[in-house]
């Protein structure tokens, strides 16, 4: 009468475990894992020397630097302004708050190519904003500044949408306790609220950053795409592909993936550290 069962899962009366997990893993492997593994395998066939050579050419290095550097800068701006937007949306009531809340999601829903040409038109010399900046000697379209603007656009909702729910769930008692203990509003914010929000903020930052590093559609229209100046790494992959330089394209892709995974891992660890500190 002994019923032997696999130990790696708890038995359940709900049917369909085998088939749903089987389909999930198979489909995941076919669509995502095997193709991605193919990328790494391909780069392995290059050999270390050629791989290293491919990713250390000045143009590639510049492109990686531009992609990662501007993505970090844009994510930082988004962390600050995203926090403000989330704060205003959660804490203050004003006419049209619901509409503003919905607007935050536009970058999620608007196709990147559409965003790209719209931003370009907006910031061109004769554009609505570009026209205002031109007399000041600031040019955005077709410069690295344009990349920055595009990456702010696509990254903002990530920060707002990760911070917002945590801010909503923040217990009022915590702030009230801080106030009753004599803290000023400023002290309460810096010492009580901000540390509580930090893990969510870090998650939003990481998401905004990882989206920005790989971004292509909204950037290529506005960037000007000058090698060494305003050429992003994803664009360089496309250029190499069009030249049928598959090996080099693969090498850049692998370098990008490894770098962004490493950065994400670092942010993850930082977050875990912050969370464990928050709990203690």
């Amino acid at each position: 009468m002994t019923t032997a069962r696999l130990t790696w899962r708890q038995p359940s009366v709900i049917p369909g475990f085998g088939i749903t997990l089987g389909v999930t893993v198979t489909w995941l492997s076919l669509i995502v894992l095997i193709p991605l593994a193919g990328l790494f395998l391909k780069s392995a066939t290059l050999g270390w020397g050629k791989f290293f050579e491919a990713i250390t050419s000045p143009r590639v290095l510049a492109a990686l630097e531009i992609s990662f550097g501007i993505a970090l800068a844009a994510a930082t701006v988004n962390a600050v302004f995203g926090l403000i937007v989330a704060w205003v949306l959660v804490r203050y009531d004003f006419p049209g708050r619901r509409v503003v809340d919905a607007i935050v999601d536009i970058p999620f829903a608007l196709p990147t190519a559409v965003a790209g040409i719209a931003l370009t038109a907006l910031y061109a010399e004769n554009g609505w904003i570009g026209g205002l900046l031109e007399p000041l000697g600031i040019r955005v379209s077709f410069t690295p500044l344009g990349i920055f603007v595009a990456l702010i656009f696509i990254g903002l909702p990530f920060v707002v949408r990760t911070v917002q729910p945590v801010l909503e769930d923040l217990e009022p008692e915590i702030e009230e306790a801080a106030a009753s203990l004599g803290a000023t509003r400023r002290q309460t914010f810096l010492r009580v609220i901000l540390p509580t929000l930090f893990p969510a903020l870090a998650t939003g930052y990481a998401l905004a950053f990882s989206r920005a590093v790989g971004e292509y559609g909204s950037v290529i229209f506005i960037a000007g795409n000058m090698p060494l100046v305003s050429e992003i790494a994803p664009l360089l992959i496309v250029i190499r592909l069009n030249e049928f330089a598959y090996a080099e394209a693969t090498a850049i892709a692998v370098a990008m993936l490894i770098a962004s995974f490493a950065l994400l891992l670092a942010i993850n660890l930082l977050q875990r550290w912050a969370r464990s500190r928050g709990r203690g």
Binding site: M1, T2, T3, P11, V13
Partner: peptide, 23 residues
């Protein structure tokens, strides 16, 4: 029948139920 025992038997009206599901 929502969980399974590692060993032992359940009889409902004298009839072993351990191999039948909750349904």
């Amino acid at each position: 029948g929502l969980e399974w025992p590692e060993s032992g038997d359940i009889r409902i009206d004298g009839e072993s139920a351990v191999s039948s599901g909750a349904r």
